[in-house]
Amino acid sequence: MNAHLQPTGSAYFLTKDTQEIERHTLSVLVDNEPGILARVVGLFSARGYNIESLTVSETEHGRRLSRITVVVIATPKVLVQIKLQLERLVPVHKVHDLTAEGASLERELALIKVAGSGDHRAETLRLADAFRAQIVDASVESFVFEVTGKPAKIDSFIALMQPLGLVEVVRTGLAAISRGPQGM
């Protein structure tokens, strides 16, 4: 109904009004100050948004800036709200929706502990090689692998390790950056 009245300069454009749920990766540039993570996480819980993954670390020590990568699942309307609500927080500098803005790279790192002996051990090593997983710790009955890549790749490596003596997994959560020469 409102579609014919869209372009209004710098103001926000109407998003599609659908109830379809989408998965988006947001990159949030924030002041690295005490409580900033609580502010961001508190916003999500207070307003009932879903976080699928969240990573945070200082990225520019000089300017005391941290970058938060957060993966959210929501309808397009809620996604716009999440972005605007994040921007409303005083220590938030910028919010970029990497999924909406075009090509981006997404990577995750996992440490995976597998215990076993005999044939299982040999099979484990063959698969680790195929996935370019590094051995970062080894004992006579176990390995710890370090594997990086898209979350889907890590998912499948973990699934393959399951029957071969998977003990435990730790994952960093997603780090993402846009392709091309532009920065945030």
Binding site: N2, Y12, K77, R88
Partner: peptide, 11 residues
């Protein structure tokens, strides 16, 4: 800005 389109979509 977060008040815009929060509950009612506007033109």
């Amino acid at each position: 800005p977060s008040s815009i389109n929060k509950v009612v979509r506007v033109d």
